[in-house]
């Protein structure tokens, strides 16, 4: 896949950043509105998918290498496990020990906000990695011949 025309590339350049910021917003406000870590992670992935489709797999792989996606994926999973392990300060796995705050405030719900962020990192990095792997693997047979 070589990438698309310059119209598609310019529009993608304008829009993709906004899409990814929206993904971060959705995963930050998951405890107040519909959305959350899963939806936010998939939105971030959709922004990267736009970039990959518009600019081609090789260019995207230069910017965000597949191996770096593995590291981000693993660190997201580790962060979620860490959030769970922090509960031991209060007596058990997954105990929500932070203060609850007031309902409808951004900082509320204790461990739910960091858990959402960890999940969105994990989902986004994992799915971007496998999408990049698929795009790059698709090119393989033609380059061998």
């Amino acid at each position: 896949m070589k990438g698309m025309t310059s119209i598609v590339r310019d529009v993608t350049r304008l829009v993709a950043g906004v899409v990814m910021v929206y993904g971060v917003y959705v995963s930050c406000t998951g405890h107040l509105t519909p959305g959350g870590g899963f939806a936010g992670g998939v939105i971030i992935m959709a922004g990267v998918v736009m970039l990959v489709l518009a600019f081609g797999g090789e260019r995207a792989n230069e910017l965000l290498a597949e191996s770096r996606c593995h590291v981000l994926d693993g660190s997201g999973a580790l962060a979620f496990a860490l959030v769970a392990l922090l509960g031991f300060f209060a007596g058990g796995f997954f105990v929500n020990f932070l203060p609850r705050g007031r309902v409808h405030q951004l900082v509320s719900g204790g461990m739910i906000l960091p858990a959402n962020l960890a999940i969105s990192l994990k989902v986004a990095a994992g799915l971007i990695g496998i999408f990049l792997a698929l795009v790059l693997a698709t090119r393989q047979p033609s380059s061998q011949e």
Partner: peptide, 24 residues
């Protein structure tokens, strides 16, 4: 169901990877 939707996406990705490999 929210967890099941995202699991569905990753399962689809795995199945697509297997199909691509078989086609190659």
């Amino acid at each position: 169901v929210l967890t099941s939707i995202v699991i569905g996406l990753s399962v689809t990705a795995l199945a697509v990877a297997l199909a691509v490999r078989l086609y190659d």
